[in-house]
Design a protein around this nucleic acid. Structure first.
Length: 575
RNA sequence: GCGCUCGUAGCUCAAUUGGAUAGAGCGUCUGGCUUCGGACCAGAAGGUUGAGGGUUCAACUCCUUUCGAGCGCACCA
């Protein structure tokens, strides 16, 4: 259903035939032959650059060659109504109305699958969020969560299999601090002991909630010895903190399929296994690291340690696997985790990381290449910082944690739909300004509203006409006419599969909000024409329905709905 | 010092991956609509794409130099 890819192939085949007749020459290395969307001021359906690319090989000017190609294509494709030669030699191709009618029929038939591309079906693993299970999610996590979830939706829409995965870092020093914090809160409650002033402890109120739950559950009777209760206390604390995080994710409409616990990988000796495996391949050795330059470290001690040779895969330095106390570094555990991913036979691994972890990418990509013998591709997407504003002023707020804005705060204030749409409206590798006021406005300033409003308007038309929008409307083949405005909308609709294709192949979902916004702009603008001129109204005064117009509306509603559901944003019927 | 990301209209951002006169929204200016076909619509002004050089029919896009911003740089995760 991708018009542009389809005609790129068809026109190329057609030109090959022309070559067989020795009318033109096509060089063996022809690269950037494309069929594209014409610029906005051009009314053609599609545009082809063949003449410009082939001009040199044919010893001809692009415009003269274009004349030859034009005649050929017109006689070859009955659906082409006319072709204009424009600019430096572009072929701007117009379709007959019957072509658009058939295209529209296909959209209605495909319905929720319209836009899905026939790509190679692959098995993806998308790891995202993976926040430490030591507290609620904040706004920074939020952007990554929405990005990962939407990428998953997008790839699934295109027929791929996707596992949404959360890596729970429940091993290491931070967890000990977290469990200690819960412990001291429990003592505070049951024995009235003051909570220690210690920077390593977590101060947030949620810790008190967790402490209360554990006391209430009564599975631990005696709290007097920390070491004795540690195992049980840690497992319960983690359970509650993961519940907290899942609840936060739920607010965002995000649900993971799989949670992998670091501690379990450590228990199963997965780290040792992968270390042995890589030692055999000579990717691991004992060596010394230089102190980093440009940064003063007081107590730097050069020591022998276990290192991974990530430099041979393009990393800046080799990376340590063991801490001074002999326990595994985070990286060692993550290596084991990626080994675990690879052993589950995914075609492509995707990690969504926050900006502050970007420096980690080379390391983990190197590790993945080493483990999989270069066979598995790991793609890392970085989501940049979110800056919060309220009425143009930088905004800081937190009722629960003291120093950052939580997902809960955000959703309470602006809602899931606005949050998701706004977070996705920027390329992920650019910083995002998020204004609380703007996203709650019901106006054109707020793109979510603008898109949802278009969908609600379409619904209101069908309500007035007493026609069910969910039922497929039959196209009246005999009386099929569309005016220029309607063809423009249909042309934009025909871009949808291309938008999906680009978004998913480049893993850039921000294209979808932009596309939807442009699409509904055409619709709102057309709607307003109906105010001045009753000829353009969807609900005719004489009661005679305009069938093609309604079919067009249905197609439009399909695209809005498909797009919004990829974004995970609702499409209410009334507003 | 090194690495990653970014630099486009006054502001916030796009740009079909090398294509046509670089496009939207906000803001500014002009005109229209005036309450459920409502919460807007039409139009105008606004640009040396941070700067210099290179590659080619064609560069915001690729290469190179340079300036600026953000993030990161053993034993945290």
């Amino acid at each position: 259903m991708n018009l542009f890819l389809e005609y790129q192939k068809k026109i190329f085949v057609s030109l090959k035939n022309l070559e067989k007749k020795k009318i033109i020459k096509i060089p063996s290395k022809i690269r950037n032959f494309t069929v594209e969307l014409p610029p906005k001021d051009q009314r053609a359906g599609i545009s082809c650059n063949a003449a410009m690319i082939l001009a040199r090989a044919n010893n001809n000017s692009p415009t003269q060659l274009a004349e030859i190609l034009k005649e050929h294509l017109l006689s070859n494709f009955i659906e082409f109504k006319s072709i204009e030669i424009a600019g430096p030699g572009f072929l701007n191709i117009y379709f007959h109305i019957s072509f658009w009618r058939k295209y529209l029929t296909k959209i209605i038939q495909l319905n929720s699958k319209y836009g899905s591309n026939k790509m190679l079906k692959k098995k993806y693993n998308i790891e995202f969020v993976s926040a430490n299970p030591t507290g609620p999610l904040h706004v920074g996590h939020c952007r990554g969560a929405v990005l990962g979830d939407t990428l998953s939706n997008l790839l699934i829409f295109n027929g791929n299999k996707v596992t949404r995965e959360y890596y729970v870092n429940d091993y290491g020093g931070q967890i000990k601090n977290f469990v200690s914090s819960v412990y001291y809160r429990i003592l505070e409650i049951i024995e009235d002991k003051t909570f220690p002033q210690d920077q390593n402890l977590y101060p947030g109120d949620y810790i008190i909630d967790i402490a209360k739950k554990i006391i209430k559950k009564k599975s631990i009777k005696n709290f007097s010895n920390f070491n004795k209760v540690y195992k049980q206390l840690s497992s319960e604390s983690l359970k509650y903190s993961m519940q907290l995080i899942s609840g936060n994710l739920n607010l965002l409409g995000v649900r993971h399929n799989n949670f992998v616990y670091e501690s379990k990988l450590v228990d199963k000796k997965m780290v040792q296994k992968i270390v042995k495996k890589l030692q055999k391949k000579k990717y691991i050795y004992e060596g010394k690291l230089e102190a980093p330059k440009g940064k003063l470290i007081k107590d730097w001690k050069t020591r022998n340690q276990l290192l991974f040779k990530s430099t041979i895969f393009g990393d800046d330095i080799d990376r340590p696997l063991q801490k001074a106390d002999g326990t595994w570094t985070y990286f060692a555990g993550d290596m084991a985790y990626h080994f675990h991913k690879i052993s589950r036979k995914f075609n492509i691994l995707i990690n969504v990381l926050g900006a502050d972890h970007a420096g980690y990418i080379k390391r983990i990509v190197s590790a993945t290449r080493a483990i999989s013998n270069n066979k598995v591709n790991l793609i890392c997407k970085v989501s940049q910082l979110v800056k919060l504003f309220k009425n143009g002023e930088p905004f800081k707020m937190s009722k629960r944690s003291g120093d950052y804005v939580t997902v809960e705060d955000l959703i309470k204030e602006v809602g899931k739909d606005s949050t998701r749409f706004m977070m996705l409206s920027r390329s992920n590798d650019i910083e995002l300004d998020f204004d609380f006021e703007k996203v709650t406005e019901k106006s054109k300033d707020n793109p979510v509203f603008y898109v949802q409003y278009a969908y609600a308007r379409i619904n209101s038309i069908f309500r007035l006409l007493k026609i069910n929008l969910e039922n497929k409307i039959k196209i009246d083949n005999k009386k099929f006419i569309l005016n220029q405005h309607e063809i423009e909308i249909l042309k934009k609709i025909s871009e949808w599969p291309k938008c999906v294709e680009l978004s998913s192949s480049k893993l850039e979902p921000h294209r979808i909000p932009f596309y939807l916004y442009e699409l509904v702009t055409l619709f709102h603008s057309y709607w307003n024409l109906g105010k001045d001129n009753k000829e353009f109204r969807f609900v005719p005064e004489n009661g005679i329905l305009n069938n093609p117009r309604l079919v067009l509306l249905q197609a439009l509603s399909i695209v809005i709905k498909n797009g919004m559901s990829i974004l995970g944003v609702s499409t209410p019927r009334t507003m």
